[in-house]
Amino acid sequence: MILIGRNLKIKIARVELDMTQKALAEAVGISRQTMNAIEQGDYNPTIRLCRAICKVLGKTLDELFGEED
């Protein structure tokens, strides 16, 4: 399991690019419902989806999904 609790890093990275949840969801080919669940920490995405999100947001896996110290 990579995500524990809410994933604010995705939200911050998304807002920095001025993207809505819907826009990010469309960019990675998922529903807004799923994107929201990922940000809320209600769904743990597969590594494939994590990489797709990182690619769109221009971040590394560690930056977005790495564990907090």
């Binding site: 080919g29 998922i30 529903s31 419902q33 799923t34 669940a37 990922i38 769904y43 995405p45 597969t46 989806l49």
Partner: peptide, 10 residues
Amino acid sequence: TSKNNLDEMQ
């Protein structure tokens, strides 16, 4: 894919 309209969570 054309066979699956759902994303992984759905």
